[in-house]
Amino acid sequence: MRPQHAKRPFSIRRLLAGGWLLLLAGAAVLAPSETIIPDLAHVSQPPFGVGHWLGTDPQGLDIWQALLQGTRTLALVSVPATLLTLLIGAGLGSAAGFLRNSGWQPTWRSLLTGLLVGLAALAQGPRLTPASGGLLVVTVGSWLLLGRFGFSRRRVALPVDTLVLGLMSLLESVPLLILVLAAAAVQRPSLGGLVLLLSLSCWTTPARLMRAVTLQVSAQPYLEAARAAGIPAARLLAAHIWPNTRHILLVRFPLTVALLIGLETTLSFLGVGLPPEVSSWGQLLATIRLAPTAWWLVAWPGLALVSTILSLHTLGRTK
């Protein structure tokens, strides 16, 4: 006999978790967009006082307003970063699992052109804009130049699986927090920069999961039959692989959001995250160092943070 609560799709726990996240979404939308004016006449004021019902921080910022703005920042960082993380993870994981080490055999010409374009893009770095014609010149130039050599038409088996696994091992060999901290300490990131930084450092777990499940699905007899029937790889992926693997992404979504919220808050707490003028829960938590006896500086953002991460884990587990 199965336990009774397993039959109910909406347990109290899930309901609470979902309700809290909805509240956060509402807060993110309704949060004031104008800068909070510090009330210097009431610095470090305890909660439930006049005008500041959750209290103020040592710089006179209203905790309630800062929490609301922090919620918006959290949403603006964690949700796009999660989507990008899952996109990178899903793309690379699926490619590694589906193509393995011999599934993709490009010509030397296209491979080397791709490499040169990649190197040019890296060299151009932040100056790279869609309007810049440099990359187009490199692409066309290298394509035409390589076409003159006989070997360029030969095909080569690209070890996609080995390359992706190697990249994952490399990234995972450095503890995640240290990796993100080191990158953020070099240059304080903007909002977009932080999204990119978090995504580029956290994609390995979804990629591993996607690779594993793609390998599993690829070995099914109906896929062997589809390959034998000559169905193109892109259609195989779109029509037969992804419908059977995408549930992994849905399960990972709340857990990845929780992970990224934790990381963003840690970075802001340590003072290497977002700029000081952007409110965040981590910054609010960090103000406790200026007023160690002001318990409310830890209590409210801490409570919000714990509730959010617990809610996301609850949804992630019961999906």
Binding site: T35, I36, I37, P38, L40, V43, P58, Q59, G60, L61, P276, E277
Partner: peptide, 8 residues
Amino acid sequence: TAARQFSA
């Protein structure tokens, strides 16, 4: 605090 007050 001075920087934040000025910034706001």
